[in-house]
Write a protein that binds this DNA or RNA. Structure first.
Length: 1103
RNA sequence: GGGCCAGUAGCUCAGCCGGUUAGAGCGCAGUCCUGAUAAGACUGAGGUCCCAAGUUCGAGUCUUGGCUGGCCCA
């Protein structure tokens, strides 16, 4: 016997009960072992979730997809690994640990102790991975939770060692000295990926600075920069040799050289006007022309080409600093230049800016002055130019972005501190070199963690040379991308990216397996075994620890060739190496190649697309291609971002972020999962209470209502499930129809999920639930109410079929919905099947249903049923127009359709429509004039040009004729002749209006007309139904049970009495009355209402 | 500045291979139905399918150009 179904359940509570049950029965284990002997596999490789904080609702979106696809393939019988991954290493974990310790900089960590710090990082990861595991289980994410991988594992780290060794064997690893973006707060450089995360629009103080030309009196070049601190390290100036420069003489006698086109250039005019990429409060920028005029006006003395300026010498603004005087540059010394006694001051001359890699001029007209200051120790392009032109480099900052020794009074001051900028500007002002200061809005790189401005530092970092990117692009092409444009996006990244900077001067992360030697060489160790073999010192201290800092730093090795003793570089690795290797590390690549081959490449990987093109998708594809020479995945499924209800980004700081735990217990995860599954993954998803309520109301509650309707009646009627679960054979056309629909929906769901279209699969089910609830159940309710129960065997075939059919539909539906909403489907399935032999312990141990393609007959039945639905809808619409309630029967409904309806189903349509629209007689007609008056009007746009002024006469003539007859004639002969003019169907507009006593309505494929004239019989029947309706409501409001028998007393006039007498039997049946009595007076009635000017009072009692 | 994508009802979005009169949900207003329904049905929205040109018998759909917005990269 089924368990009674609560018609108003608490879904979160229901889910928690099921979680307990699954735990008790060990259901997840049974699920993950279901297909362990299968010949076919489905390999899903999880992109690791950062185990650094509890999950937000956005994590649940991705995890819903991952679970959904894996469940689907489980139902298809594929063996799977169900392995979840946690991302453990990297700066983001360090950041949180630092925060909890109240640390301000890297120094604090060193003082605290690297070992203690790294252990705290590990602890944090262990804590949050456990929390995320529990949250995932709450979501209904069924994985092999004992088998999750952690990117901090030895296996993962050593696998990356192997990868790096291989890259080095191919000559792709190098140490580069370069100017890179640097965070003073974190004390490390940032990779290309990280800079992109941290770009933001800010207003900087930008300055116009006078550079005094040597050998000239009072002549200057004007230079503009947004980073005044770099002026301290100026080495040379750049011009564009093809540009024209104007020699401008100001009132006070000063002469300035600037690019001629820049003089009147309105700087950032568009940005200012449109307020896009502009910061509120920043005033409009001034043109050079304006600045000169404000200083008393100026005259252009002559125009010269940039070429002419090349070689001019100047005095730098900070030549008094000691650093400027050090030969060879500082603190990195260029030995050749040192020998030649060349220092920064000696490099002070104007150079040709030349072109960049893509062939664009480095110095442009427009912004600035057309003369660019270059500091090879403070900018990446500057550094390249410095190399090309044999310039020294001054790199003024230390790890914390403070000025170093030999920058005199600046020493120890922070480069991004606004007080430092103040001092620099003040100094320049004192030197009379500061021409003008302004606020300038632009997009500038910032630290993604602290929001602090980045600086540029000249440092040594380690790189992977990516000159083999074409190989990765081949892998990209071998992969099926969903959405399809992902492929293009990945190509674009691969085309534009630079070499991969893999080092970071931090503590918690992959220890780069690079050992350096005194001769400048380096050696890459590819495994733990190799390390042991080469170790000559510190192995004992290291052995037994994970390959992390500080333990691994203690191992010194002997170079196998040179025999020199070397030490590990202290850097840790880029975290995307950690996640990129998982196609190997988690598949036993190093110790069980057969296993690896079985599961590689993946069938599917999936992550949210913003960012992943340059992060995980990139590193996974790159490492896969390098080690396996093929794409590491057949499909990449990606999706957009979760936003709040109004479409804004969710931020903790803005208070609109929603934590997963809150959402799960307030809303219920099935509702959330359905919302996620039905979303078009390309679009951002809006999440909030309004939206989830809508899903609950639209999908979850209707499903539940169907289930509770079925189950509760089945209990009353003592229905027992069939011995075998197979498609019922019913003679009832409605049953046949809904079976066809459920089979077709099942097929659609399977096809869409196979193509990774969960949204389309989900919407197909929504559509089916709509048909089931609003047509099948509504139309068939009475079949379930019929008397007779199963136990006593007093049951007719039709009732039996209704039960069998709805049972089959519900069980099938619970299966095909189980990948999306694992909780409610489990509840439905187990309640309905628990007493059967064929039922599984859980719906999640079921197979995906498979049905034969639908027959022609079934298609015809579908068309006919949909026609009945449409005609009923139009019929109701017609009723509503004439304000005739559905309770009031009407005599006739006529319809015409363009659909081809098989004759065997016409009768069904007539019955259904008659019932649904409450009409005595429904008729299918072939000719329009049978349901509407035809009005024929000349088509003026065609006839106008043809007959001109005769139109008026024609119009009059047509108006005087019988349009129905005209139309008949037109249909028969394809033409009619009026006033000597031949007209075809195209020459006229045909309109339809209602016939007398009728209401006509049409849509694309159907025309419907109902008779609106009511005779006495109809009116009386209407009254009887009105009475029944009111009594039913009264029963409900009085709290009577459905099966309670009642006595009814009424008081009303003769009309009422007549109707009640006439319909006494019918009324009694409907309201379960054992007697109906008229009272002489209005005795304490329960209800009193008016029908057609007669008042009736009614009183009911249990009898 | 370059690349990609989008622009359809008040809002969020469907609209397959070009095919009559372009749909859904929500919101709003009104009406109705209901002993599975804190549900549902119907009506009102009469949409310049961003604009223009082109291809075609026929364009929301294809092509080109423009406008606007989003994302990515400089």
């Amino acid at each position: 016997m089924f368990k009674k179904v609560d018609s108003n359940p608490n879904f979160p509570k229901l889910e928690n009960n099921l979680l307990a049950k699954w735990k008790k029965n060990n259901t997840i284990k049974k699920y993950t072992k279901k297909n362990s002997k299968s010949k076919e596999t489905f390999s899903f490789i999880d992109g690791p979730i950062t185990a650094n904080n509890p999950m937000g609702v956005h994590h649940a979106w991705g995890r819903t997809y991952k679970d959904l696809f894996q469940r689907f393939y489980t139902m298809l019988g594929r063996e799977q690994r169900y392995q979840n991954g946690f991302d453990c290493q990297g700066l983001w974990v360090e950041v949180e640990v630092e925060k909890s310790l109240g640390f301000k900089s890297k120094k604090d960590i060193q003082e605290f102790g690297v070992e203690k710090f790294v252990n705290l990082c590990k602890e944090r990861v262990n804590k949050y991975s456990a929390i995320q595991r529990d949250q995932s289980i709450r979501l209904g994410y069924w994985m092999n939770w004992d088998d999750s991988y952690y990117t901090m594992s030895d296996e993962n780290n050593y696998s990356i060692w192997g990868f790096l060794k291989k890259m080095n064997e191919n000559g792709k690893i190098y140490r580069g000295t370069d100017v890179v973006p640097w965070s003073g707060r974190s004390g490390t450089s940032y990779s290309q990926m990280e800079i992109i995360e941290g770009r933001k629009l800010v207003a900087h103080r930008s300055v116009f600075i006078k550079f005094k030309l040597k050998n000239k009196i009072n002549e200057y070049v004007l230079v503009w920069t947004t980073t005044p601190w770099t002026l301290t390290s100026n080495v040379s100036l750049l011009v564009n040799k093809n540009l024209n420069y104007a020699k401008c003489k100001l009132k006070n006698g000063d002469v300035f050289y600037v690019a001629e086109p820049n003089l009147k250039h309105q700087r950032l005019e568009k940005e200012f006007k449109e307020k896009k990429e502009w910061i509120e409060g920043v005033p409009k920028l001034k043109s050079l022309d304006q600045l000169f005029n404000e200083r008393g006006g100026y005259s252009v003395e002559k125009i010269i080409k940039g070429t002419e300026m090349i070689g001019w010498e100047y005095s730098g603004p900070f030549d008094e600093l000691d650093a400027a005087k050090i030969a060879g540059g500082y603190p990195f010394t260029n030995n050749d230049l040192e020998d030649q006694k060349i220092n920064a001051i000696k490099c002070h001359r104007i150079l040709d800016g030349g072109k960049d890699q893509e062939g664009n001029d480095i110095v442009n007209s427009g912004e600035g002055t057309g003369i660019v200051h270059t500091a090879p120790g403070c900018g990446d392009i500057d550094f390249k130019i410095g190399k090309q032109n044999n310039l020294v480099a001054l790199a003024p900052l230390d790890e914390e972005a403070n000025f170093i020794e030999n920058f005199n009074w600046l020493k120890g001051k922070n480069a991004t501190d606004s007080k430092t900028i103040d001092l620099i500007l003040e100094d320049l002002k004192d030197k009379e070199l500061l021409f003008y200061t302004e606020m300038y809005p632009h997009i500038y790189p910032h630290c993604w963690r602290s929001g602090d401005e980045l600086v540029f530092r000249l440092v040594d970092e380690w790189y992977i040379n990516m000159d083999w990117r074409e190989d990765i692009k081949k892998s990209v092409d071998q992969t099926n991308w969903i959405p399809a444009w992902g492929k293009q996006r990945e190509h674009q990244w691969l085309n534009n990216m630079g070499d991969w900077m893999i080092s970071k001067k931090r503590f918690w992360g992959l220890a780069l397996p690079i050992w350096e030697f005194e001769d400048g060489s380096f050696y890459i160790v590819g495994s733990k075994e190799e390390l042991k073999q080469l170790a000559c010192e510190g192995w004992e201290e290291f052995d037994g620890n994970s390959p992390h800092r500080p333990w691994v730093d203690k191992v010194k090795i002997k170079h196998p060739k040179s025999g020199l003793i070397g030490q590990r570089v202290l850097d840790v690795g880029n975290p995307w190496l950690d996640a990129g290797i998982v196609g190997f590390s988690t598949l036993n690549y190093n110790n069980d190649k057969d296993y690896w081959k079985k599961w590689f490449p993946a069938d599917l990987i999936s992550e949210s697309f913003p960012g992943q093109f340059r992060n995980w998708f990139y590193s996974y594809l790159t490492m896969g291609t390098a080690l396996a020479q093929e794409t590491p995945t057949k499909n990449i499924f990606s999706y957009a971002l979760v936003r709040d209800e109004s479409g804004e980004e969710m931020h903790k700081s803005q208070g609109n972020a929603i934590w997963f735990d809150d959402a799960a217990e307030d809303i219920g995860v099935d509702v959330i999962r359905w919302l996620y599954a039905r979303q078009n993954p390309e679009n951002n998803l809006r999440f909030g209470p309004e939206i989830t309520n809508e899903i609950r109301r639209q999908v979850i509650i209707p499903l539940w209502n169907i289930y509770s309707f079925f189950t509760n009646y089945a209990i009353l009627d003592k229905f027992t499930p069939p011995k075998n679960f197979s498609e019922p054979k019913s003679k009832n056309l409605m049953d046949q129809w809904i079976l066809t629909e459920v089979k077709e929906t099942t097929d659609d769901v399977k096809n869409h999920l196979t193509l990774y279209q969960p949204d389309k699969a989900t919407l197909a089910i929504e559509n089916f639930i709509n048909l089931l609830s609003n047509w099948y159940i509504r139309r068939n309710r009475r079949r379930f109410w019929k008397s007779g129960d199963f136990e006593s065997n007093q049951i007719d075939d039709d009732k039996f079929s209704a039960y069998e059919t709805l049972y089959f539909v519900l069980v099938t539906l619970s299966k095909i919905m189980s990948p999306m909403i694992p909780f409610i489907t489990e509840e439905i399935y187990t309640n309905l099947t628990k007493d059967t032999k064929w039922g599984k312990e859980s719906v999640h141990l079921e197979d995906f249903p498979f049905f034969k393609t639908k027959s022609l007959d079934e298609s015809e039945l579908q068309i006919a049923t949909r026609a009945a639905m449409k005609i009923s809808s139009l019929g109701r619409s017609a009723r509503s127009k004439t304000k005739i309630k559905v309770r009031q029967p009407i005599n006739n409904l006529h319809f015409k359709t363009k659909e081809t309806i098989t004759s065997k189903y016409i009768e069904m349509i007539l019955t259904q429509v008659s019932d649904e629209v409450n009409v005595k007689k429904v008729k299918h007609v072939n000719k329009s004039y049978q349901l509407s008056n035809i009005i024929i009007k000349p088509n003026n746009s065609i006839l106008g040009p043809r007959i001109g002024s005769k139109i008026g006469k024609l119009n009059n003539e047509i108006q005087s004729l019988n349009h129905n007859e005209l139309y008949k004639e037109l249909l028969i002969h394809n033409k009619i002749i009026i006033s000597d003019i031949e007209l075809t169907l195209e020459d006229v507009h045909i309109e339809h209006t209602s016939l007398d006593n009728s209401e006509f309505i049409e849509d694309n494929n159907f025309k419907v007309s109902i008779e609106t004239k009511l005779d006495n019989n109809l009116i009386e029947e209407g009254i009887s139904r009105e009475i029944i309706h009111n009594i039913q409501n009264l029963r409900k409001n009085s709290g009577f049970n459905i099966s309670d028998k009642i006595s009814m007393f009424y008081y009303g006039d003769e009309k009422i009495e007549k109707v009640i007498k006439k319909y006494q039997t019918h009324i009694s049946e409907e309201i379960l009355a054992t007697k109906i009595m008229k009272c002489e007076s209005n005795r304490g009635s329960n209800i009193k209402f008016k029908i057609n000017n007669s008042t009736i009072s009614i009183n009911i009692d249990l009898s």
